[in-house]
Design a protein around this nucleic acid. Structure first.
Lengths: 349, 349
DNA sequence: GACGTCATCCGAAACGCTTTGGACGATAAC
DNA sequence: GTTATCGTCCAAAGCGTTTCGGATGACGTC
């Protein structure tokens, strides 16, 4: 292994100057810099990361901790995440450490161990929850991180997110504009911050139109095909509240819902109007469904480059304003919504 | 962060003794060891991995390098691999580093960079090829690794594998015993060592029965459903060689083949006999197929714990004999094979 | 009493890097 | 001619750990 000392001896320079030359410091002449870098390249010099870390306190390793091995059907997305992050971070000269925790371990302890060893500079946090313990711990410990999503105020941390409130408001509003007043919402798990934001958007859209929210039409749960199917049956099956339209939190839920509707004998959009938020999950595109669904669209895959970039910047101590980003959301109308001719439920009762 | 020096001051001992006490060295009294470990626990001492690495030359990090982001349908398996390895290594007190290379980078350069930085102690190598460049490089560089599979002789390196030659021989032999003489083999990619081993097994079984190999019945290619389908059509469609039985390299190939056979109107086992090697890929079990397939079975998921254990032992400098393992293979007869009544092709011609 | 043995401890060096504080000429400013 | 400034360089300290080569004292042996 070539070390700085090897280079310095070969060049007749001090170790100091060689180090500075390689790291593009100011006080080294252009000529020396060239010479040093040429020799370094020739000898295939690679800085020893451990030594660097010991001197600087930084290891160049960024981590992702998962609480358990992902199972179907989320595992495909997991590949995208891990692959995207790893590749992006590699391009930024960092290394990616994946840690899959023991499910029975306390997650905060896992983080404590990882930063305690000094092996990891910062973390990507997925699926933030309200009052997220990881966020609280890392913030207090002064360890850099970036959240995929956001937590409750104050928003004084790096994140990449989409405007979930606006997404829900837009989708719900679109149905309201078509005359619907009894609109179901298949939301995500109650403890997830994005589900909370979306609830706000849903409510705002209803409130704007003077519609009173029906508790039974708002369902929280995992964003899975199974959940979509179950919710669909429960909403539209016998004894169900039978709304006239449904907002789906993602395309997996939508797929399940469409199956339920088909089984029940309801067609879209004639019988029920359906809109969805589309993360562009692999193999589950809203435009390829039957019928193609009107959707807000924001590819999940766009997140990873941003998360990588933001995390690296955060570790390097960039300004907070440079570390917060809201992704772009498109709205695509595709004819899965029909004008509602039903007499408002309130009058029926 | 608590350091050895903190502990030593607090205990009135030298840093040396504290270090030795924590690492269970010989020349430290039982009483001191207890005391040291108690205080270390209390202060939540975590050894600084970078410092340790600098002193020992080991970082405690083990790596897996993938040439690109896995795509469907292999991505599910990838999750199992990465998840399994990461979790197992964590339990052994090591960290797992996943590196997804840029597809355009030379793979050996990627390894060179990773070990050059001194960040990684050893590697897990997946999908070995004949004359594998990674193996050549790592062996020459003296970097520990474990192969999932094997390469050509000499076998002086750590591996976990199954006896692929025997698997192919067993499956082919089973068909031979049922009277089949024109047996197709859907094998893996030609450059993979396991495909080479399986070819040997296939040939041995044929040779034993005095059957001459027909070139056109032995197909190499990706072990995908699509490939199984295409091969099925090409073998049994119009103008195809129409063997009486097929050995499938894995259940994905088998699934595709069964689709092709159904489309063509051939039934299993009445029309064609089919056997398969089953890696227990998620959602693709040989016993759940239609019909359930006679199979050799060796769960891929069993590999990860072994690979993790072996790699750690290799880094720790264990004897070679402790580092080589052949996994268990079961044979399950399920009735997808019928006795062959066809007149041997040679007599027809 | 001299010697060897043993258990237990310690100081100091080493790993490869960054960074601090200053040295040394050359040039510009007064 | 003195002083300040600037560009370029270097020695040395320090990061936290392991490890080598002793040091020390207690004890038993002859």
């Amino acid at each position: 292994m070539t070390t700085l000392r090897d280079l310095s001896q070969r060049l007749g320079l001090s170790v100091t100057q060689v180090s500075r030359a390689l790291n593009n410091h100011a006080d080294v002449s252009a000529e020396t810099r060239e010479r040093v870098q040429a020799v370094a390249r020739k000898l295939g010099y690679q800085p020893n990361l451990s030594a660097r870390r010991l001197a600087t306190g930084r290891s160049g390793m960024l981590g992702l901790v998962l609480p358990d091995i992902p199972q179907e059907p989320e595992d495909g997305m997991f590949v995208q995440i891990v692959g995207g992050l790893s590749q992006r971070l590699a391009r930024l000269g960092r290394q990616f450490v994946l840690h899959i925790a023991d499910p029975q371990d306390d997650i905060v302890e896992v983080y404590r161990r990882l930063i305690g060893g000094g092996a990891i500079d910062g973390f990507v946090l997925l699926e933030p929850e309200i009052r997220d313990r990881r966020v609280a711990f890392l913030r207090q410990a002064g360890v850099p991180f970036v959240i995929h999503g956001r937590v409750e105020d104050p928003e004084d941390y790096p994140y990449y997110d989409i405007d979930n409130r606006s997404v829900a408001q837009q989708l719900t509003g679109h149905l309201v504009a078509a005359g619907h007043r009894r609109i179901a919402f298949l939301n995500g798990p109650k403890t997830r911050t994005y589900a909370v934001s979306r609830r706000q958007g849903y409510r705002m859209a209803l409130a704007e139109a003077g519609i009173e929210e029906e508790r039974d039409l708002h369902r929280f749960g995992p964003m899975s095909e199974a959940q979509g199917l179950l919710a669909g049956v429960s909403l539209f099956g016998e004894g169900g509240p039978r709304p006239t339209a449904v907002v789906c939190g993602n395309t997996r839920l939508a797929k399940g819902l469409l199956q339920a509707l088909q089984a029940i004998g309801l067609s879209v959009p004639a019988g029920v109007s359906v809109v969805v938020h589309d993360d562009q999950l692999p193999g589950l595109k809203s435009e390829a469904m039957d019928p193609p669904l009107t959707a807000t669209c924001s590819p999940l895959a766009e997140s990873w480059p941003h998360l990588a970039r933001i995390l690296v910047a955060a570790v390097d101590g960039a300004q907070l304003s440079a570390l917060q980003l809201l992704g772009h959301v498109e709205f695509n109308e595709r004819g899965s919504v029909s004008v509602c001719r039903d007499v408002p439920a309130v009058l029926v009762r």
